[in-house]
Design a binder for these strands. Structure first.
Lengths: 116, 116
DNA sequence: ATTTGACTTGGAGTGCACTCTAAGGGTGAC
DNA sequence: GTCACCCTTAGAGTGCACTCCAAGTCAAAT
């Protein structure tokens, strides 16, 4: 799969895919005879997971750490699990915060409606 | 109220308060005899509201637009209401997205747990 | 009277996450 | 074979939202 196809399917730009590889988020994408990147399904699954971490607000630096642990093998599972659990807690807190802020927003909107 | 007190109570830094004023987010904070900023309760309430918009992800540019409409008076209520409703919709979508992503995160965590 | 420290301004600097450019090489259609 | 268009790399540039700095003013404490 070419970088354009991978970009299409992952929702990331080709620029971003190269950038992710450069900083170590994606390890060893294959190259074809002419040196072009050749993505496989496993790369796409990993990209999807990375994208989930990103859209839920994990910093790139943490994602790099996670990717590094993953490359180091099975014995890093506990640390990876801990990272995910901490992240989940942050996402949960973020959802709660957004929910609370939306209540304020609702009130503000009600006020506007009443005055009109 | 001094800028330090306003910073303390709003949760923003003094740097940020000056920045917000410079870009037009906060209009005409009073000055005391020596030219120092002198915040009043109404400023604090406005800052709290601004902070809600920020933490829910509204871009600074949109907040400036909202602040500008507010300064223009009552006849801009409809446009401000429309902005808030659009923003609320985005926040709702964001909460939904985070919730969906958290389900994936939960599965991933379950997988780790089972394998250990 | 001098020191300390908080304030003022305009403008420069920072960190993050991309995003693009330049220079060069490979590939497929005509 | 040549044209259009893809790919490669290292490195520079961008946009956002702050965050800090320099130079100067002012007020209270010693």
């Amino acid at each position: 799969m070419t970088i354009q196809e991978a970009a299409q399917r992952s929702g990331l730009s080709a620029h971003t895919l190269r950038y992710y590889e450069r900083i170590g988020l994606i390890h060893s994408v294959g190259r074809n005879v002419s040196g072009h990147r050749d993505y496989v399904e496993a790369d796409l699954r990993w990209l999807d997971f990375l994208t989930k971490l990103r859209t839920t607000g994990m910093p790139i630096a943490d994602m790099c750490r996670y990717a590094e642990l993953r490359r180091m093998g099975e014995h890093t599972s506990a640390e990876r699990l801990a990272m995910l659990e901490l992240h989940r807690e942050r996402v949960r807190a973020r959802i709660a915060e957004l929910g609370a802020d939306m209540v304020v927003l609702d009130h503000k909107i009600d006020n506007y409606r009443e005055r009109m």
